[in-house]
Amino acid sequence: MNPIEMNPVALQWLLYFGAMGLIVIGIAGVVLHQNIFRMVLALAIAEAGGNLLLVIAGFRFGAVAPILQDDALQTLNTSNMVDPVPQAMVLTSIVIGVGIQALALALIIRIHQRYGTLNMREVHACMMVDINKSAAVDDLLSAQQPRGRRPLPSPPESTAKRANNE
């Protein structure tokens, strides 16, 4: 039954570490990247890792998919099947992921239109300027920060123009 000539234990290790690795890659991507579109992609990778982990939770060696077909439909033998619950859960969580990613893309489109940038730091800086303006607070906190490290937000119009020229 086993299509891969491999020690079951070793394969299981590989699967677990693979799933955890995907999660780590995804989370590291979200934390380390500055491009907000890439952050969403990294989030998708991390979600794939979580889903893979769920599938592995229901996996067992030599078992078949939990669908009665052909012979099994006559005998109704369900003893040699993998756990169907994690598969249903994965179906659910994939759809949840799709919804969240679509919403994230819509937000990215709007952010790019308004702020003209996809860089998280610039978006954050523009947002803080807007928040401070609407709260009628002087930008005291950023004035206290050491200069130089934090790029000053460029005004939206010029950046929008630049983005269009590219």
Partner: peptide, 19 residues
Amino acid sequence: ASSFAAAFRYLLISGLGTV
């Protein structure tokens, strides 16, 4: 614009939480 940016950052953090 600022609420789009805030919602997006919220979504990212929340998405990490989901994972």
